[in-house]
Amino acid sequence: MGCWLSKQVKHTPGYEEPAVLAAETAFTVSEVEALYELFRKISYSIFKDGLIHKEEFQLALFKNSKKNNLFADRIFDLFDLKRNGVIDFGEFVRSLSVFHPNTAQDEKIAFAFRLYDLRSTGFIEREELKEMVLALLNESELCLSDDLVETIVDQTCKLVDSNSDGKIDPIEWKEFVRKNPSLLKNMTLPYLKDITMAFPSFVMSSEVDDE
């Protein structure tokens, strides 16, 4: 009698078929497969459970798992669509798709708004704006006087808050970004357009044994 040894393909938790993700995102099937390789590398870097934890996200971004950064935290939280503290493969691909050059600008504008709406109130409030400016100054070790920070925040609020209700709503944000498109530059990663060319090392077998 013959005996076959079969290799069981084991995917990460929350794995979704590349064809399904490609249909919903700006990526092709082979790009989603390449992203799976990237996802596996990040999600097995510390906890080795096939899910990206915040420390693994920080390690990938900063080569330091303990480096806290307000904006990286916000991006992690927005990638974590299920709000369970980790990013699974589907969340990773869907969220990265926002940063694809072919993704509609409105989607990028909406994502950036949620990013800056630190307390998820539906508005970017003056205090949030000030908190973000202070975080950046702290990160970059730039020193601006309190008066100058207040002036910059006040001026920006005045500029964006067209109905003068003291906070920035999504319509005001959209209008402001349309006049200042450079504000969206962080929302596009040019190399996502052809991951398989830019990162040939990600292109491996689409059926990978996690063992």
């Binding site: 996200f57 971004l61 990286a72 950046l136 504000l183 190399y191 090392s201």
Partner: peptide
Amino acid sequence: INLNAFDIISLSSGFDLSGLFEASE
């Protein structure tokens, strides 16, 4: 002063997702 707070914020290294790709190559 003609500084826009959002322009300042966008300078954060936290927005640079290229690290995700570089670190994993």
